[in-house]
Amino acid sequence: MSDLLDTLAAASPQLWEGTLVTLQLTFGGAALAFLVAVGLGLAALSPWVIVRTLVRVIVELFRGTSLVVQVFFLFYVLPLWGVELAPYTTGILALGLNYGAYGSEVVRGSLTSVPQGQWETTTALSMSWLHKMRRVIWPQAWALMLPGLNNLLIMLVKGTALASFFLMNDLTFVSDQMRRTAGTFTSYGIAMVIYLLIALALSWALRVLEARALRRLGLREPTKGETAKATAEAVA
């Protein structure tokens, strides 16, 4: 036991560093992913066929070709084209675009799940597009999309582990370094626990948001089952 504490004490500066890198990638990636998801999700409902088609192509491209391939593309191919990105930028860009594409399906699905009658009423009241989105449709869709976004956020946290592969000192990288001194069980065990705590904390925060959104609509919370099904559809 005291061995474990000694190892932890010795490794804590690096672990802390690694956790910070992972957190930065998580927040940066999630922020970008959210913007991409909302942008593409709204554009997917555009009245113009060209816009909708373009969105479909982008989304299917990012969903269809693995996050790892996309990261490698940014990391190895862009420099050949003269675009040198910092590792951070590469990581955040890849996570943001990939999970943003998945997220856009969640956003689109939630928007279209807002009952038709609600959309029609906004027309009957002559509301502008921005007005109906902001005040009527979005608040209702928001409650519906949070469970899906929650699942994607956890996946994004796990996805940040890829960063160690292009030389960032994230949690996975640090724990891999620790293996020689601390042993397999301790080093990877600690890393997994930290990842778990990050994921749990974020997931809890989004559930609080969801409960609030639902309360505002006077609705019940969805069952675990409904959420699970919706997630599987989004990530495929």
Binding site: G117, A124, P139
Partner: peptide, 13 residues
Amino acid sequence: IGMVFQQFNLFPN
């Protein structure tokens, strides 16, 4: 023009 629907369609938020 205003309209009232069969299903009320009040905004739940």
